[in-house]
Amino acid sequence: MQESRAGHGSRGPGFGLGLALLSAVAFGGSGVAAKPLIEAGLDPLHVVWLRVAGAALVMLPVAWRHRSLVRDRPALLAGFGLLAVAGVQACYFAALSRIPVGVALLIEYLAPALVLGWVRFVQRKPVTRAAAFGVVLAVGGLACVVEVWAGLGFDAFGLLLALGAACCQVGYFVLSDQGSDAGDDAPHPLGVIAYGLLVGTAVLTVVARPWGMDWAVLAGSADLDGSAVPAWTLLGWIVLVATVLAYITGVVSVRRLSPQVAGVVACLEAVIATALAWVVLGEHLSAPQIAGGAVVLVGAFIAQSARPGGPTAGDAVPASETELARSGRAT
């Protein structure tokens, strides 16, 4: 696994970490641009549809170039579109209508812990204590960043929707890692993203029903902390930076690192989103939020610097294969 990841180009893990951080920054900036559009009159689901559909349009030439993926990896493309694109967005925004934003965000970012569970118990691969400790720190820090104690209006179905968003985000990390060990036969990440966005657009079209959108909002302006900004500029940022750039850097970073490491680094998205809201929208941070952000940073660093553990019982090499290797007859 590690040899294959290291062989992805001439750059080492530091490059993958840089991509993961860039992806977190790009994803984290989506809310700052989306909130003024929603306040200007667009429905949240319509903003999501515009985001995904616009990104799919940008990536259409890439989809055509990698059209062989439709024949070779249809299940991967469908899964990525349903889970990593449509599922995360739809479940999260639906949860927001029933439970507080902070609670929904915290539950969604339980995904790194769920990723560790997937790796350990489904893929039966070792997980280091350092990586697990990093996840615990990151989730605890997120509880402070989103001030989960500020809103306790829990709704059972809303909690299930937020948990659904977390599970879909697990799908994003796991599916992004598909083919990391396949060398030249690995599905091209840009092709997977392009078709995932197309599938996501189709699904969200049914959910969001964009034909009822107030399109006139896009021709006007939106208020950004007292400044009038063209709505199309904000939409352009959401599409090009918070979606296209975010998905490209995110998927490539998962292949260069691992789902569990990239998942913990992605927790920084909540910290970045909160910091940007402070700077751009004037939504000030409290002392617990600042402290929580520092804890998330520490947790992400610990997790990304962890090294794979030794083989577990599920990874043990059969005795017959060991004997063949020693005798020089194994290939």
Rank of each mutant, 00 (worst) to 15 (best):
G226I: 03
A222V: 09
A194G: 03
D225F: 14
H188P: 13
G236R: 14
V192I: 04
V203G: 01
T233E: 14
A182G: 11
A208F: 01
D223V: 14
G236P: 13
G196C: 04
L234G: 11
A208Y: 01
Q178L: 09
D181Q: 08
A208V: 02
L224N: 13
A208D: 01
A186W: 11
S176K: 13
T205H: 00
L198Y: 01
G200H: 02
A228K: 14
R209M: 08
V229F: 11
L218W: 07
V203Y: 00
G179T: 07
V206G: 00
D223H: 12
A186V: 09
A182N: 08
V229H: 13
L204K: 00
D181W: 06
A208H: 01
W232Y: 15
L175M: 07
Y195F: 15
A222E: 08
W215I: 07
W232V: 15
G183K: 03
G236T: 12
T201M: 00
P230M: 11
G183L: 02
W215E: 07
G191E: 13
T233G: 14
H188K: 12
L218R: 08
A194N: 01
W215G: 05
W215P: 06
A186S: 13
A202F: 01
A208M: 02
G200T: 02
L190Q: 14
D214L: 06
L190G: 13
V174E: 06
V199K: 02
W215M: 09
T201P: 00
G226T: 06
G212T: 05
T201L: 00
W215D: 04
L218P: 10
D185N: 05
S176A: 15
V207Y: 00
D225V: 10
D185P: 03
W232L: 15
S227W: 14
A186F: 08
V207S: 01
A222N: 07
V206C: 00
A228L: 14
G200I: 01
W232G: 13
V217G: 09
V229S: 09
P210C: 03
G212S: 09
V229K: 09
G226D: 06
L197H: 01
Q178G: 04
P189N: 10
Q178S: 07
T233A: 15
P210L: 02
A219S: 12
L198S: 04
L190K: 12
L175S: 13
D214K: 08
G220P: 02
